[in-house]
């Protein structure tokens, strides 16, 4: 009897798990199984079982991508989505044992795919959906208690730095991806005029159990990105002022007050 290691079995099994047809590796895997277990009917039955297994693997990965990108799926239709998804799965199978972390590369794949190249906004919609997915599954951390800030010495307030809640992502797009997303999670989406809606500056995070998708104005978005990068309030504000359009010092209080209330920060400290 042939002496075959487990690793050999696995390598041959894996080689044809996602391929379009069962190739030589799959056939020699089946032959090995037959030698090992010596069943007369093994040939036909194992082939059938292998096909079922192959189908389950592909189907579950395709469903996972469909669940991760429901709006993209809706925009391009089930058939188109499934075809692209299967191509993607065959080219870039999961490398992590947790399905949860699979599918980020689908965004780039989508952006390079000929059949949807005319939908310029599609990759950014996918980015928004991935941010939503990550926010949903990120660690549970309590948002910063605003009461904590009362203890900070007044002269140090400008030197405060914040820690971002683990669920937070920011997304900037020349397309109105926020409007596209909101419209397409409705049962009956209406037609959007991409020309008049303009660019999107979106904040995605989770508050308790709800994913928040917040559209910010550009100045507020820039200020928040600096804060989330660990810059002091002082630095972040000066950066926002220098790069902003029509931003005035009087807007700092309402803007920061608004951001503090969102629950996007989990901790703060005075940077010495």
């Amino acid at each position: 009897m042939a002496n075959v290691s487990l690793a050999d079995y696995q390598a041959q099994f894996y080689a044809n798990l996602l391929s379009e047809e069962v190739g030589d590796e799959g056939l020699s895997f089946l032959a090995l199984m037959e030698i090992q277990f010596g069943k007369a009917s093994a040939d036909k039955e194992s082939r059938l079982r292998l096909d079922i297994y192959r189908n389950n693997v592909l189907h579950s990965l395709r469903s996972a991508l469909g669940d991760l990108y429901p709006v993209v799926k809706r925009l391009i239709g089930d058939n188109c989505f499934n075809l692209i998804a299967v191509e993607f799965i065959r080219e870039k199978p999961p490398s992590d044992p947790a399905l949860l972390f699979y599918g980020e590369e689908f965004i780039d794949y989508l952006s390079q795919h000929q059949s949807v190249a005319h939908l310029n906004y599609l990759p950014d919609v996918a980015r928004l959906e991935f941010a939503h997915h990550i926010a949903f599954h990120s660690a549970d951390v309590m948002p910063l208690d605003i009461g904590e800030l009362a203890g900070v010495a007044p002269e140090s307030l400008g030197e405060l730095v914040f820690e971002a809640h683990p669920s937070v992502s920011l997304l900037k797009s020349p397309w109105p991806v926020d409007a596209i997303w909101h419209e397409n999670i409705k049962e009956q989406p209406s037609v959007l005029d991409l020309g008049t809606l303009g660019a999107a500056n979106v904040l995605v995070y989770r508050l308790n159990f709800d994913i928040q998708i917040v559209s910010l104005d550009e100045n507020c978005f820039n200020f928040l990105s600096q804060l989330l990068n660990g810059q002091t309030i002082n630095h972040a504000w000066h950066h926002a002022m220098a790069n902003g359009k029509g931003l005035e010092n009087s807007e700092l209080s309402p803007m920061l007050g608004y951001l503090l209330n969102l629950g996007v920060f989990s901790a703060c400290e005075v940077k010495l």
């Binding site: 309590m142 009461g147 002269e155 700092l252 007050g257 209330n261």
Partner: peptide, 23 residues
């Protein structure tokens, strides 16, 4: 000016914070 503005922001945030039920 900046420190004062931040203090105002914190007061604003504390005043308008949703019911403190988290925790």
């Amino acid at each position: 000016i900046l420190n004062t503005a931040v203090a105002t922001a914190i007061t604003l945030a504390a005043l308008t914070a949703p019911e403190a039920e988290a925790g």
